[in-house]
Design a binder for these strands. Structure first.
Lengths: 190, 190
DNA sequence: GATATTATCTAGCGTTGCTAGATAAATAAT
DNA sequence: ATTATTTATCTAGCAACGCTAGATAATATC
């Protein structure tokens, strides 16, 4: 069975190379530059091989997004762990969120902006998505009764900050002030 | 000069037909269905004619977005005017924002999600964009000293609500509760 | 060694945004 | 009134896209 196992490993490794290439190209040149031909070139196989791994281009973007969610929830959890007091944790997580969005712009775009079939708050929600939500909920929980409600609102505000800043519609310089305002509002919720 | 004037009018009218067609197709079938060929078909001219009106496809999307901003700020201003008390106005505007985003999804997408060169908070900001910001600022102003800061935050939260709800990532049923939470937080700002 | 299966490739379809070069129509100059 | 010039428009096509059918090579099975 060892040959079959090696083949399986090779396949998995090739699939990972596709995802990695997509991620690198997206980060450097934007998602428009991530074409099937370009990826095929990068992994040194013909284009149809990609379709033996992924149903279509969107599935490749989704695979990158999943990777992103893993790192994202790790970053948020870390931020919460490093901060001591509860209010500090809230602010640390909010800052970590915005830092992630800014320094992994293409990744964040795949996760939250580009059309995708990945869903939240549904039975078929991917565990990676759940983990990210849980990381936010954890730092919000001490301040409220309806955790889900406040977490959704916290998340939405952060997403709005990230998006409007990315598209140059709010002032980058006021970032900390906005975070402070948000954290203050949440920590004073009944 | 009357012939030249008529020509100018005809041209302007044709340009408007392009924008209108783009808007209708986007609303019915999504922005991917808005192709140059399709628009050319719709206005019954050849494709190159479109490029005598707009530099490229993105410019057509931007033209639709500008229309959207006009209607958007009108909707927000109306909501504020119809509401009496200040807190009520805040909530009315928040609700109007989300209703607009939901019932004009393609328009909202052109305004805030699709890549565009339209900018906020810059010297070259379009007046249509300024008006929308001003409409939000007007209802926020009574509750805070730093109006710009709180308006940005208000806006970001609403944008996050709209986007996360559109992509199925927060619960549509909790919409009113989230608005109430946001309005409560803003109206208690020092 | 013949047969079936799997892995991969070449070649191409239909569509996209966009443009060069040709043609027809309107205007200006003689 | 005829010619020249500018303006408006079209036909045709390029390069690139996502994706796939059908052919070929490599591997496994009998």
């Amino acid at each position: 069975m060892s040959i079959a196992e090696r083949k399986g490993r090779d396949r998995a490794e090739r699939e990972q190379r596709i995802v990695a290439a997509a991620r690198v190209i997206a980060a450097r040149e934007g998602w428009d530059a991530v074409t099937i031909r370009r990826l095929a070139d990068e992994i040194e196989y013909s284009q149809p091989v990609l379709y033996s791994h992924f149903a279509n281009r969107a599935a490749i973007v989704a695979a990158v997004a999943i990777e992103g969610f893993r790192e994202f929830s790790a970053a948020l959890t870390d931020a919460a762990a490093c901060a001591g007091e509860q209010t500090i944790a809230l602010e640390a997580v909010a800052s970590a969120y915005l830092t992630f969005a800014r320094s992994h712009a293409a990744l964040y775009e795949a996760m939250f902006v580009l059309p995708t079939d990945l869903r939240f708050a549904k039975s078929d929600t991917q565990p990676e998505l759940r983990a990210a939500f849980a990381a936010l909920a954890a730092v919000v929980a001490p301040f409220c009764a309806d955790v889900e409600l406040v977490t959704e609102t916290f998340w939405a505000a952060l997403h709005g900050f990230a998006e409007l800043e990315r598209s140059g519609r709010i002032r980058p310089g006021a970032r900390d002030a906005r975070v402070a305002l948000l954290v203050g509002a949440i920590s004073q919720t009944a």
